[in-house]
Design a binder for these strands. Structure first.
Length: 570
DNA sequence: GCCGTTTTCGGCCCGACTGTTTTCAGTCG
């Protein structure tokens, strides 16, 4: 069972306990679930080593339940909880502004057990009669149902980020604001986000709110208060803006950037110093005297910490590292010297090598690597051996046309079921480098998939392992594979692990990057772009690498042209 | 249900907004 699956079970228990109306237990289960999601190790391995109790938030009771779950694949406790409420209530709880209390209330009073029955009850105006509900409630519920039914889940970082930057720039310029920033999971560059959080510091909050709520792309103003407003944009994204006084900007930015777990530790540190930390300031508990608030730096400093980049504020050891002055110096987008996974018109991309080479020159890249698909991937225009040989000449010509950018010719070569590559070694050795990729037979058992990839890694022509787990966010689970074993094998064979920057992929993910760092395997961050515009996806790959604590030296394509030439020649 | 240089019980982050309340509960982040 994967960590994410185990976490999902605990989240469901938390929701069901919340329906029961018990206190504190739901949060205890959620904390344990988050820890397991963030775990670098495989939960099954932790279980095998009898170390479940070492996971933060896992005590005797939850450890016992995990043991049952991981041993039998089932959990009696969850089955029992499920019997107490109809499953539809969890869906009702997914409606915004409708929580466990209301869900149970509707169930007890009107015997409403799912979204359809709720919709019917609203349409027949049976909700209005209940205590605490009016006509407005019915309207909100109806909107909420439509939202839940049309919802695909969380929004990909790569989709939300450009939208958020547009809103931010609009408010910044129109309201003439200096102090405005992304906050929340988007500022931390999580791979998926729930909604867009913005924070502004201004002594004229009303004016800022006027500007914000009249953003041209607004579908619906969900709420509008003096310091906090929420919009739903035409694309369905929700944007929240919180305005605080100018002097409070740093405190608010820190607070609303999170993560929740990071802030809980910070607040505890404040309490230990006789202080209190909230969105307005770090202040003395007794007197209320302000200790720090204007900048994030001031707040971290007053707590005895070095400030850390938003991407690592997840309570995964960054606070300890800060205390010991051992924070990593994270890789930055400007460290990237080239892109080694780019598709062209020859397979399923939509630009020519020449067009892409010029685009790379404009970006200041020193090199680019073209890696069209291999023959087996017919659906994506995989190249025959003859076509591949032909593209070697094209690449040479482009290299002469655009001398500022060194052009490498590689292949995104299928790793077949037996671990062999899709071209004979005699062909592969004529390329500058080879990226191996799994695009077929995702359902192989773990051992077989691991052997398949390990075989490919041992091929002397392989340079990079593409998107190592094959997951696609909101679409496809990663295939079953021993990730740590693969990382070790990659390191031993001198093969780099790719961090594919495509928004659906981000594979390796942040936790895997951290694992690669621990193992000592080299990571290469690629855009996997199929168009010129997609070269920009590099931003999200670098952000994910930063979330995984990677530093410049741990990433292959921070090296300059000469070093890469030497590396690929080996 | 978890956790502990204020330990084995008694806490658990805390403030803003909404709707329908005539003072607040529920929800959210």
């Amino acid at each position: 069972m994967r960590n994410a699956e185990v976490a999902r079970v605990l989240y469901e228990i938390a929701d069901l306990l919340e329906l029961q109306g018990v206190n504190f237990k739901p949060n205890a289960y959620r904390k344990a679930a988050r820890s397991i999601e963030n775990l670098t190790d495989d939960i099954e391995q932790v279980h095998k080593e009898d170390k479940l109790r070492d996971i933060p938030g896992v005590g005797d009771a939850i450890a016992k339940k995990l043991d049952e779950l991981l041993t039998t694949g089932n959990l009696g406790y969850l089955e029992e909880l499920r019997k107490q409420f109809p499953p539809g209530l969890l869906q009702i709880m997914a409606i915004p502004e409708l929580g466990p209390k209301t869900a149970v209330h509707l169930y007890n009073e009107l015997k409403i057990t799912n979204l359809d029955e709720l919709k019917k009850a609203v349409e027949e105006h049976r909700i209005q009669g209940l205590k605490g509900f009016g006509p407005r409630s019915e309207e909100r519920i109806l909107q909420g149902i439509a939202l839940v039914e049309g919802r695909t889940g969380r929004m990909l970082l790569g989709r939300a980020y450009p939208v958020a930057m547009q809103v931010l720039e609009y408010v910044r310029s129109k309201a003439n604001l200096e102090k405005i920033s992304l906050a929340g999971s988007l500022r931390r560059m999580k791979e998926t986000i729930g909604d867009i959080d913005l924070i502004a510091g201004s002594d004229d909050a009303k004016w800022v709110m006027d500007v914000f709520t009249t953003y041209p792309e607004v579908e619906d103003v969900i709420m509008r208060g003096p310091t906090k407003s929420s919009l739903r944009l035409k694309g369905g994204l929700q944007v929240d803006l919180r305005v605080v006084k100018e002097v409070e900007y740093g405190a608010a930015l820190q607070y609303f950037t999170g993560s929740k777990d990071h802030n809980i530790v910070l607040r505890q540190m404040a309490i230990d110093k006789g202080m209190k930390l909230n969105e307005y300031a770090l202040s003395m508990k007794e007197t209320g005297a302000v200790v720090a608030r204007e900048t994030e730096e001031d707040i971290y400093k007053a707590l005895g910490l070095e400030i850390m980049p938003p991407e690592i504020r997840e309570n995964r050891g960054e606070i300890e590292a800060s205390l010991q002055h051992k924070l990593p110096k994270l890789i930055e987008l400007t460290d990237i010297m080239g892109d080694l996974h780019v598709h062209t018109k020859a397979s399923d991309g939509d630009a020519t090598m020449e067009e892409i080479a010029y685009a790379c020159k404009r970006r200041g890249y020193e090199y680019v690597g073209f890696t069209d698909h291999s023959k087996r991937l017919g659906v994506a225009g995989g190249l025959s051996v003859e076509e591949l040989r032909g593209s070697i000449d094209v690449a040479r010509n482009v290299s002469e046309l655009v001398p500022e950018v060194r052009v490498f010719l590689g292949s995104e070569c299928e790793i077949l079921e037996d671990g062999k590559l899709d071209y004979p070694n005699g062909v592969l050795k004529d390329l500058d480098y080879v990226i191996g990729a799994v695009h077929s037979k995702f359902n192989m058992p773990k051992k077989e998939m691991t052997d398949r990839i390990a075989t490919a890694l041992s091929n002397e022509n392989l340079t990079i392992l593409a998107h190592p787990t094959g997951r696609k966010l909101e679409q496809r689970e990663p295939y079953a594979v021993d990730v740590e074993g693969i990382m070790q094998a990659a390191k031993d064979n001198g093969v780099c692990l790719e961090l594919d920057s495509f928004p659906e992929r981000l594979d390796l993910n942040d936790v895997h990057c951290r694992q690669a760092k621990d193992v000592g395997a080299t990571v290469v961050i690629d855009s996997d772009s199929h168009s010129i515009a997609q070269l920009d996806f590099m931003t999200f790959g670098v952000a994910t690498a930063r979330r995984g604590w990677l530093e410049k030296d741990e990433v292959l394509n921070t090296k300059g042209r000469k070093q890469i030439e030497a590396f690929l020649k080996k």
